[in-house]
């Protein structure tokens, strides 16, 4: 019984993908939000997922993180079959995500939000002792807050922050600990031009071993920070390629760039 999955695990580990989806589908009643999605991303690879509203992009993320389980298919993270894992087990293995609609702890301060994120991927999650001020996690949290330019408001309650600041915080939470692969769900939506520039700077200055997938409607942001693009429509992948190939593809222009997003 146990020898088979082990062999399988070894064989996929040697293929060396950070993320691998095989025939992943997700149904909501009769609606197939994802159908038969097969996708692989190398470690350190940066990729955009583009597609019109309702294409299934967020559902794809939810299946990868385990927020929803797929109706069928297999998901591997660095060679390990994580399809049946609860979300926290996937996160502890180095997966991170941001949410399209900010999902923060509005009753806690900015620094406490980030501190929680750092705690979640550390040991001693159950610690009954208050952290020292020179606690390493506290330091990590402070520097993450700094990285997203929120130091000035670090002791404010998150509920009182401006929209753009909440989006920045959303990103800080996904950078906590030692991420190996990050899923960004429309991180630029609703940001001002300066905040967008900051975002591009944060993404491009991530260590090279950290790969990510970014869902982004803004082509200016998306195509500047990735090396490959996956196009989705009606729950299916219909094109993959380099940013320049995608940009000049007539079918893509017809379906996506021409259609309703302006």
């Amino acid at each position: 019984m146990s020898a088979v999955p082990n062999l399988e695990r070894l064989s996929t580990a040697s293929s060396g993908n950070a993320l691998e989806l095989r025939g992943v589908s997700r149904l909501f009643g009769a609606l197939a939000a994802l159908s038969d999605v097969t996708l692989s991303v190398r470690p350190g690879e940066r990729r955009a997922v583009l597609g019109s509203n309702g294409a299934g992009k967020t559902t794809l993320f939810n299946c990868v993180t385990g927020d929803f389980s797929p109706s069928s298919g297999v998901i591997r993270f660095f060679g390990e079959d994580v399809t049946a894992f609860p979300p926290h087990e996937r996160i502890r293995r180095g997966l991170r995500r941001t949410y399209q609609i900010s999902s923060l702890f509005t009753g806690l301060t900015v620094i406490d939000n980030v501190y929680l994120a750092c705690r979640g991927v550390s040991r001693n999650r159950f610690s009954l002792r208050r952290p020292r001020r020179d606690d390493t996690l506290q330091h990590a949290a402070e520097s993450l807050v700094d990285a997203v330019h929120l130091t000035a408001v670090k002791d404010r309650l998150v509920g009182e922050l401006a929209y753009g600041q909440q989006r920045q915080l959303e990103i800080a939470l996904a950078l906590s600990g030692a991420p190996r692969f990050i899923l960004f769900d429309e991180p630029a939506a609703g940001l001002s031009p300066t905040e967008r520039a900051d975002l591009v700077q944060i993404l491009t200055s991530l260590p090279a071993h950290i790969g990510y997938i970014i869902i982004e409607h803004d082509m200016d942001v998306a195509l500047r920070v990735v090396e490959s693009v996956t196009m989705m429509h009606n729950g299916r992948i219909f094109k993959e390629g380099r940013p320049d190939e995608i940009e000049s593809d007539p079918e893509v222009q017809e379906l996506y760039l021409g259609g309703g997003h302006g």
Binding site: G107, L108, L173
Partner: peptide, 12 residues
């Protein structure tokens, strides 16, 4: 406040 996010931060 947000159990789903807690799981997405690595908490059981």
């Amino acid at each position: 406040d947000n159990p789903r996010r807690m799981a997405a931060l690595g908490f059981d």
